[in-house]
Amino acid sequence: MTNQQSSSAFLPGFEQKGTGIPVVLLHGYLGSRRYWHDVFPALVSQYRVIMADVRGHASSPATEGVYTMEQLAEDTLALLNRYEIPKAYVFGHSLSGYSTLALAEKYPDRLLGFGLIHSTPLADTDTAKEGRLQTAERVKTEGVAAVVDGLIPKLFAPANRTAMEHKVTAAKEIGYSATAQGAIGCALGMRERPDRTHVLRDTKLPVLLLAGEHDEVIPPDRRFPVSGDHIKAVTLPGTGHMSMMEDPSRLADEIVAFIEKNEGNRA
């Protein structure tokens, strides 16, 4: 099933399949729901799985302005409301980890649990903020493709850039589908996001924090800044920032194990 917009609110492009517990999968910057296609089959046999495109990416229309994490969280909420899903597990990759935290902060009652996949609750450093401005300016002057070509290989573990060259190429092709406005809006929105470590610390929801051993985007000191009985922290060996493409089977296993444990606790 696919859709793009509703008459009453912005609705992301998405696809869904399966029955049972709702699971929402959200991609990172200059990606699309296609990032999750190798994870999708392992989950859809057990759950109702929804993969959505971030505003301005792939099948989701672009709108003007800065795309704040709060706005992207509202996009996810609109999807849940459109299909009358009272509660769901939401797993956000990178950029979408930031918006998932915004969702968990404002609408915790709409979540069964959530996961940050290669993401962090911390705000950008000053250096990173400057980098966001440079990215937005490069999109304006050189186009989306130039940013995609420079960024995507760095998302894979160094060894995988050659060993998985076909997947790097596939990720680039996905990136080219982003609009210039989507790329700029999200870059500036990430720059503005606040620190949300308090959300991880204070939430009553179960949380999955999943990192890649060789992730060069999220350094080790920013991956697990909060610990607690409600938080499961996992590092996937041999992966960078793209485990959904680098090791989709292992990522799917970790998501299933997380959901099964928490549904068992709930029972």
Rank of each mutant, 00 (worst) to 15 (best):
P41F: 08
A42V: 07
A42G: 08
V44W: 04
S45G: 11
S45Q: 14
Y47M: 01
R48K: 11
R48D: 08
V49Q: 02
V49D: 00
I50E: 01
I50N: 00
M51D: 00
D53F: 07
V54I: 15
R55N: 04
R55T: 05
G56R: 03
H57F: 15
H57M: 13
S59W: 10
S60D: 06
S60T: 10
P61W: 07
P61L: 14
P61T: 12
P61H: 12
A62Q: 09
A62Y: 08
A62M: 08
T63A: 14
G65F: 07
V66H: 06
Q71M: 14
A73L: 08
A73Y: 01
E74M: 12
E74T: 15
E74V: 15
D75Q: 10
D75L: 10
T76L: 09
L80K: 00
L80Y: 01
L80P: 00
N81E: 15
R82Y: 13
Y83T: 03
Y83L: 10
P86T: 10
P86W: 06
Y89L: 03
H93K: 02
H93M: 06
Y98S: 11
S99G: 04
S99D: 05
S99C: 14
T100I: 03
T100P: 02
L101I: 05
A102W: 01
A102I: 02
L103Q: 00
A104V: 05
Y107E: 11
D109R: 11
R110N: 09
R110G: 02
L112I: 04
F114Q: 00
F114C: 01
G115M: 00
G115F: 00
L116Y: 02
L116R: 00
L116M: 10
S119Y: 07
P121H: 09
P121Q: 10
L122W: 07
L122N: 05
L122R: 11
A123M: 10
D124V: 10
T125L: 13
T125A: 13
D126A: 15
T127Y: 15
T127L: 15
A128V: 14
A128G: 15
L133D: 14
Q134L: 15
Q134Y: 14
T135G: 05
A136L: 10
A136Q: 08
E137K: 12
R138F: 12
R138P: 06
E142I: 09
E142H: 14
V144P: 03
V144W: 02
V144K: 01
A145P: 04
A145G: 06
A145T: 13
A145L: 11
V147H: 03
V148F: 11
G150D: 14
L151T: 12
L151G: 04
L151E: 06
I152R: 03
I152Y: 01
I152P: 04
P153C: 10
